[in-house]
Design a protein around this nucleic acid. Structure first.
Ligand SMILES: [Mn+2]
Ligand SMILES: [Mn+2]
Ligand SMILES: [Zn+2]
Ligand SMILES: [Zn+2]
Lengths: 139, 139
DNA sequence: TCCCTAATTAGAATAATTCTAATCTATTGA
DNA sequence: TCAATAGATTAGAATTATTCTAATTAGGGA
C-alpha cells in the first residue's frame, strides 16, 4: 500500500486539474486551513519559508495564479505595484490602509452601490469593486 | 523685454511651487489643454515624444508625482503593475476594461455607496473608490 | 549678466513579476 | 514494481514599471 494521501486538500487540487504536489499542498494549507486571508506572493513565500516549507518564489507565483484560475482565490487590486490575493472568493469589498498595506473585508451584504450608469455599449459588467481607503487618525 | 511667458499654465505651476520649465509646460499642455484624461507615465511620454517635446521618462514620472502632490492630478489604482493618473480631480469613479486598459469616468453625482460599515477604530476614511470592471460582450 | 538652486537627464539600481531551460516527481500502465 | 511520460519545481536570467544617482542644464532673482 502506497499510502496515497487522498484527503480534502488533495481532492480540491485534483478537482482543479492540479497535481497535489508537496508545494501546492503546503501552500493550500497555509491559505485555506484558517479563516479568510489576504496575501501577496512575498508574504506567502516568507510564511512558507518560516514554516519550514521549502518552495521557490516562482512556485508561489505559479500556485497563486493557478488557484485563482481555479476559483479558489481572487485577486484584489488596491495598490499599483503589488498584487494581493484573497481566499474569500465571495463578492465583497475592502478597507485598505495605504500606510501599511493592511486589507480587511467588508461583507457585500449590507453595502449597496446604487445608480451606477449602464456600462458603455458593447460591454458588460464583470465585477464592481469598492475600496475604502483609510488612514490612522491624525495623532 | 525678456518675453517671459506668464500665461495661465505658468501661473498654475508657480502656484504649486514648481518652476514653469519647458518640460513641465509641455506636459501640462498635453494633460490639461483638452478635456479630462487618464494617462500612464509611458503613454504620456510616448505622446510627448510624438509631439516633438523632448523630455525624459524620469521627468515625466517626476512631473506626474509633483502635479499629483499639487492637486492637479490624482492617481487611480485599477491595475496592479501600472499607475494611472487622472486629470479629473473631482470625486468620481471608473469603468475599467481590463483587456485594453481603457478607463472612463463615472460622475460621483448619481452613484451612491450606502450602508458601508464604520472604518476600524482609530482610522478615518480618506476616499471611497468604486471600480466597475467591464469586458467586451462575448462575440 | 551672474550666481545659486531647482530641474532635467542618462543610465544604473530596485522591485515585482514572468520566463527559460534544466531537473525532479506524480501518475499511470506494463 | 517500475519505467515512461507529462506535469511541476526551481535557480537564475529576463522583463517591466518605477526610482535613484550623480552629472549637466537652465530658471529667475539680484
Ligand atoms: Mn497578475
Ligand atoms: Mn513595479
Ligand atoms: Zn477580501
Ligand atoms: Zn477619472
Amino acid at each position: 500500500m502506497t499510502g496515497r494521501p487522498s484527503n480534502a486538500a488533495s481532492e480540491r487540487l485534483r478537482q482543479a486539474g492540479l497535481r497535489p504536489t508537496r508545494q501546492r499542498l503546503a501552500l493550500a494549507g497555509l491559505l485555506f486551513d484558517g479563516g479568510d486571508r489576504h496575501v501577496t506572493a512575498e508574504t506567502l513565500h516568507r510564511e512558507a519559508i518560516g514554516t519550514h516549507v521549502r518552495v521557490s518564489l516562482a512556485t508561489v507565483y505559479n500556485a497563486l495564479h493557478q488557484f485563482t484560475k481555479a476559483g479558489l482565490l481572487r485577486e484584489v487590486v488596491v495598490d499599483a505595484g503589488r498584487a494581493y490575493f484573497d481566499t474569500n472568493t465571495r463578492h465583497h469589498h475592502h478597507f485598505f490602509v495605504e500606510h501599511d498595506g493592511a486589507l480587511s473585508d467588508i461583507a457585500a451584504g449590507g453595502v449597496e452601490v446604487s445608480r451606477l450608469p449602464a456600462p458603455p455599449a458593447g460591454t458588460e459588467v464583470e465585477r464592481v469593486d469598492v475600496v475604502v481607503r483609510i488612514r490612522r487618525r491624525q495623532g
